[in-house]
Simulated scan of single mutants.
Amino acid sequence: GVEELARRGIAIGNGEAVMENARLIKSPDEILAMRRSIIACEAAMGEMEAALKPGISENELWAELHRGNIARGGEWIETRLLSSGPRTNPWFQECSSRVIENGDLVAFDTDLIGPYGFCADLSRTWLCGDRQPSNEQRDLFRIAADQIAHNTDLMRPGISFRDLAERSAVPPDDCYPTRYGVLYHGVGLADEYPTLPHAGDWTDDTPDGVLEPGMVLCVESYIGRLGGHEGVKIEEQILITETGNEKLSAYKLDERLL
């Protein structure tokens, strides 16, 4: 078909960039659908947290998110990113049959396509059981929470992608090698344009642009020391507004770790 169109003088191009840019600014209806997806996702997260007790496996806990999403009209989940204890460092280990122990950190990334086909991409890290968190667990969590807070505050209309990356807080030196691959990424029907790496990872091929009202991006943090025992993952979903931003995700952070 492509050859025949070319023979007739019709040029064929990759449509991905066109579609990604068309989806960049969300309509009011799209924002409403996204809010509904996040509400469903966070309700399922609440059921996960209630089920989180020593002795449950990572797979069993992850199944609570799936069940809650489907029960509320959601569609699918892209990944299996839930890990506990020593499996939280490095990040990107999929959930397993490992039994979660008292005092473990449990970190996850929802990557969830919920009701109306919109993505709810949130991350939290919880402390399992009734043990007090260690100083190291508190320290990792504080660094991640502070990075998210600082970088969220930068997300305002008019700031360029490059400037946003260069002004962003990044993990400390002993956590930088295990950093999450991006600082921010667009979100809509799934992960979308733009994808903004750390300033040190910026290349001549990295697209630049400007934050505009109606864009929705996720702000990411993973903090785990190189060779360390555990790590902390936090991610929030942010709407760019005319005057600043609105955090669409509302699920509380684990206050025991703050």
Rank of each mutant, 00 (worst) to 15 (best):
L81C: 00
R72D: 01
G68P: 05
S97W: 06
G74V: 09
L81N: 04
E94G: 10
P86D: 14
T88C: 05
R80G: 07
N69T: 09
R87S: 05
C95T: 08
I77E: 13
Q93K: 14
H66C: 09
P90T: 02
E94M: 10
G74E: 09
S97Y: 05
L65M: 14
T79M: 15
R80I: 00
F92H: 13
S97N: 03
I77K: 03
R98F: 08
S84C: 12
L81E: 03
N69G: 03
I77R: 10
I70R: 14
F92Q: 07
E64L: 13
G85I: 09
S97E: 13
E75I: 06
E75C: 01
L81F: 08
Q93V: 06
E75A: 00
Q93M: 08
I77H: 00
I77G: 02
N89S: 12
T79S: 15
P86R: 15
F92D: 08
C95K: 08
N89Y: 00
R87G: 01
P90A: 06
N89G: 06
E78F: 13
L65Q: 04
W91H: 13
E75F: 05
P86L: 04
R87E: 04
N89C: 06
R87H: 08
S84A: 15
A71L: 13
E75H: 09
E94Q: 08
L81G: 02
G68Q: 05
G85Q: 08
I77V: 14
A71S: 07
P90S: 05
E78S: 14
L65Y: 01
P86S: 12
W91N: 08
R67E: 08
R98D: 10
I70K: 13
L81T: 07
A71I: 08
S83P: 07
E78K: 09
I70S: 12
S83L: 09
L82W: 06
E75P: 01
R67P: 02
H66S: 02
S96V: 02
L82C: 11
W91Q: 10
W91V: 14
N69W: 01
G74S: 09
R87F: 04
G85A: 10
L81I: 04
L82S: 14
I77F: 02
G73V: 03
R72K: 12
F92R: 12
W91G: 07
A71F: 07
G68L: 03
R80E: 11
S84D: 02
S97A: 10
G74A: 11
F92E: 13
A71E: 14
R67H: 11
A71W: 02
F92P: 00
H66Q: 05
C95M: 09
L81Q: 01
I77C: 06
E64R: 15
R72A: 14
R80Y: 10
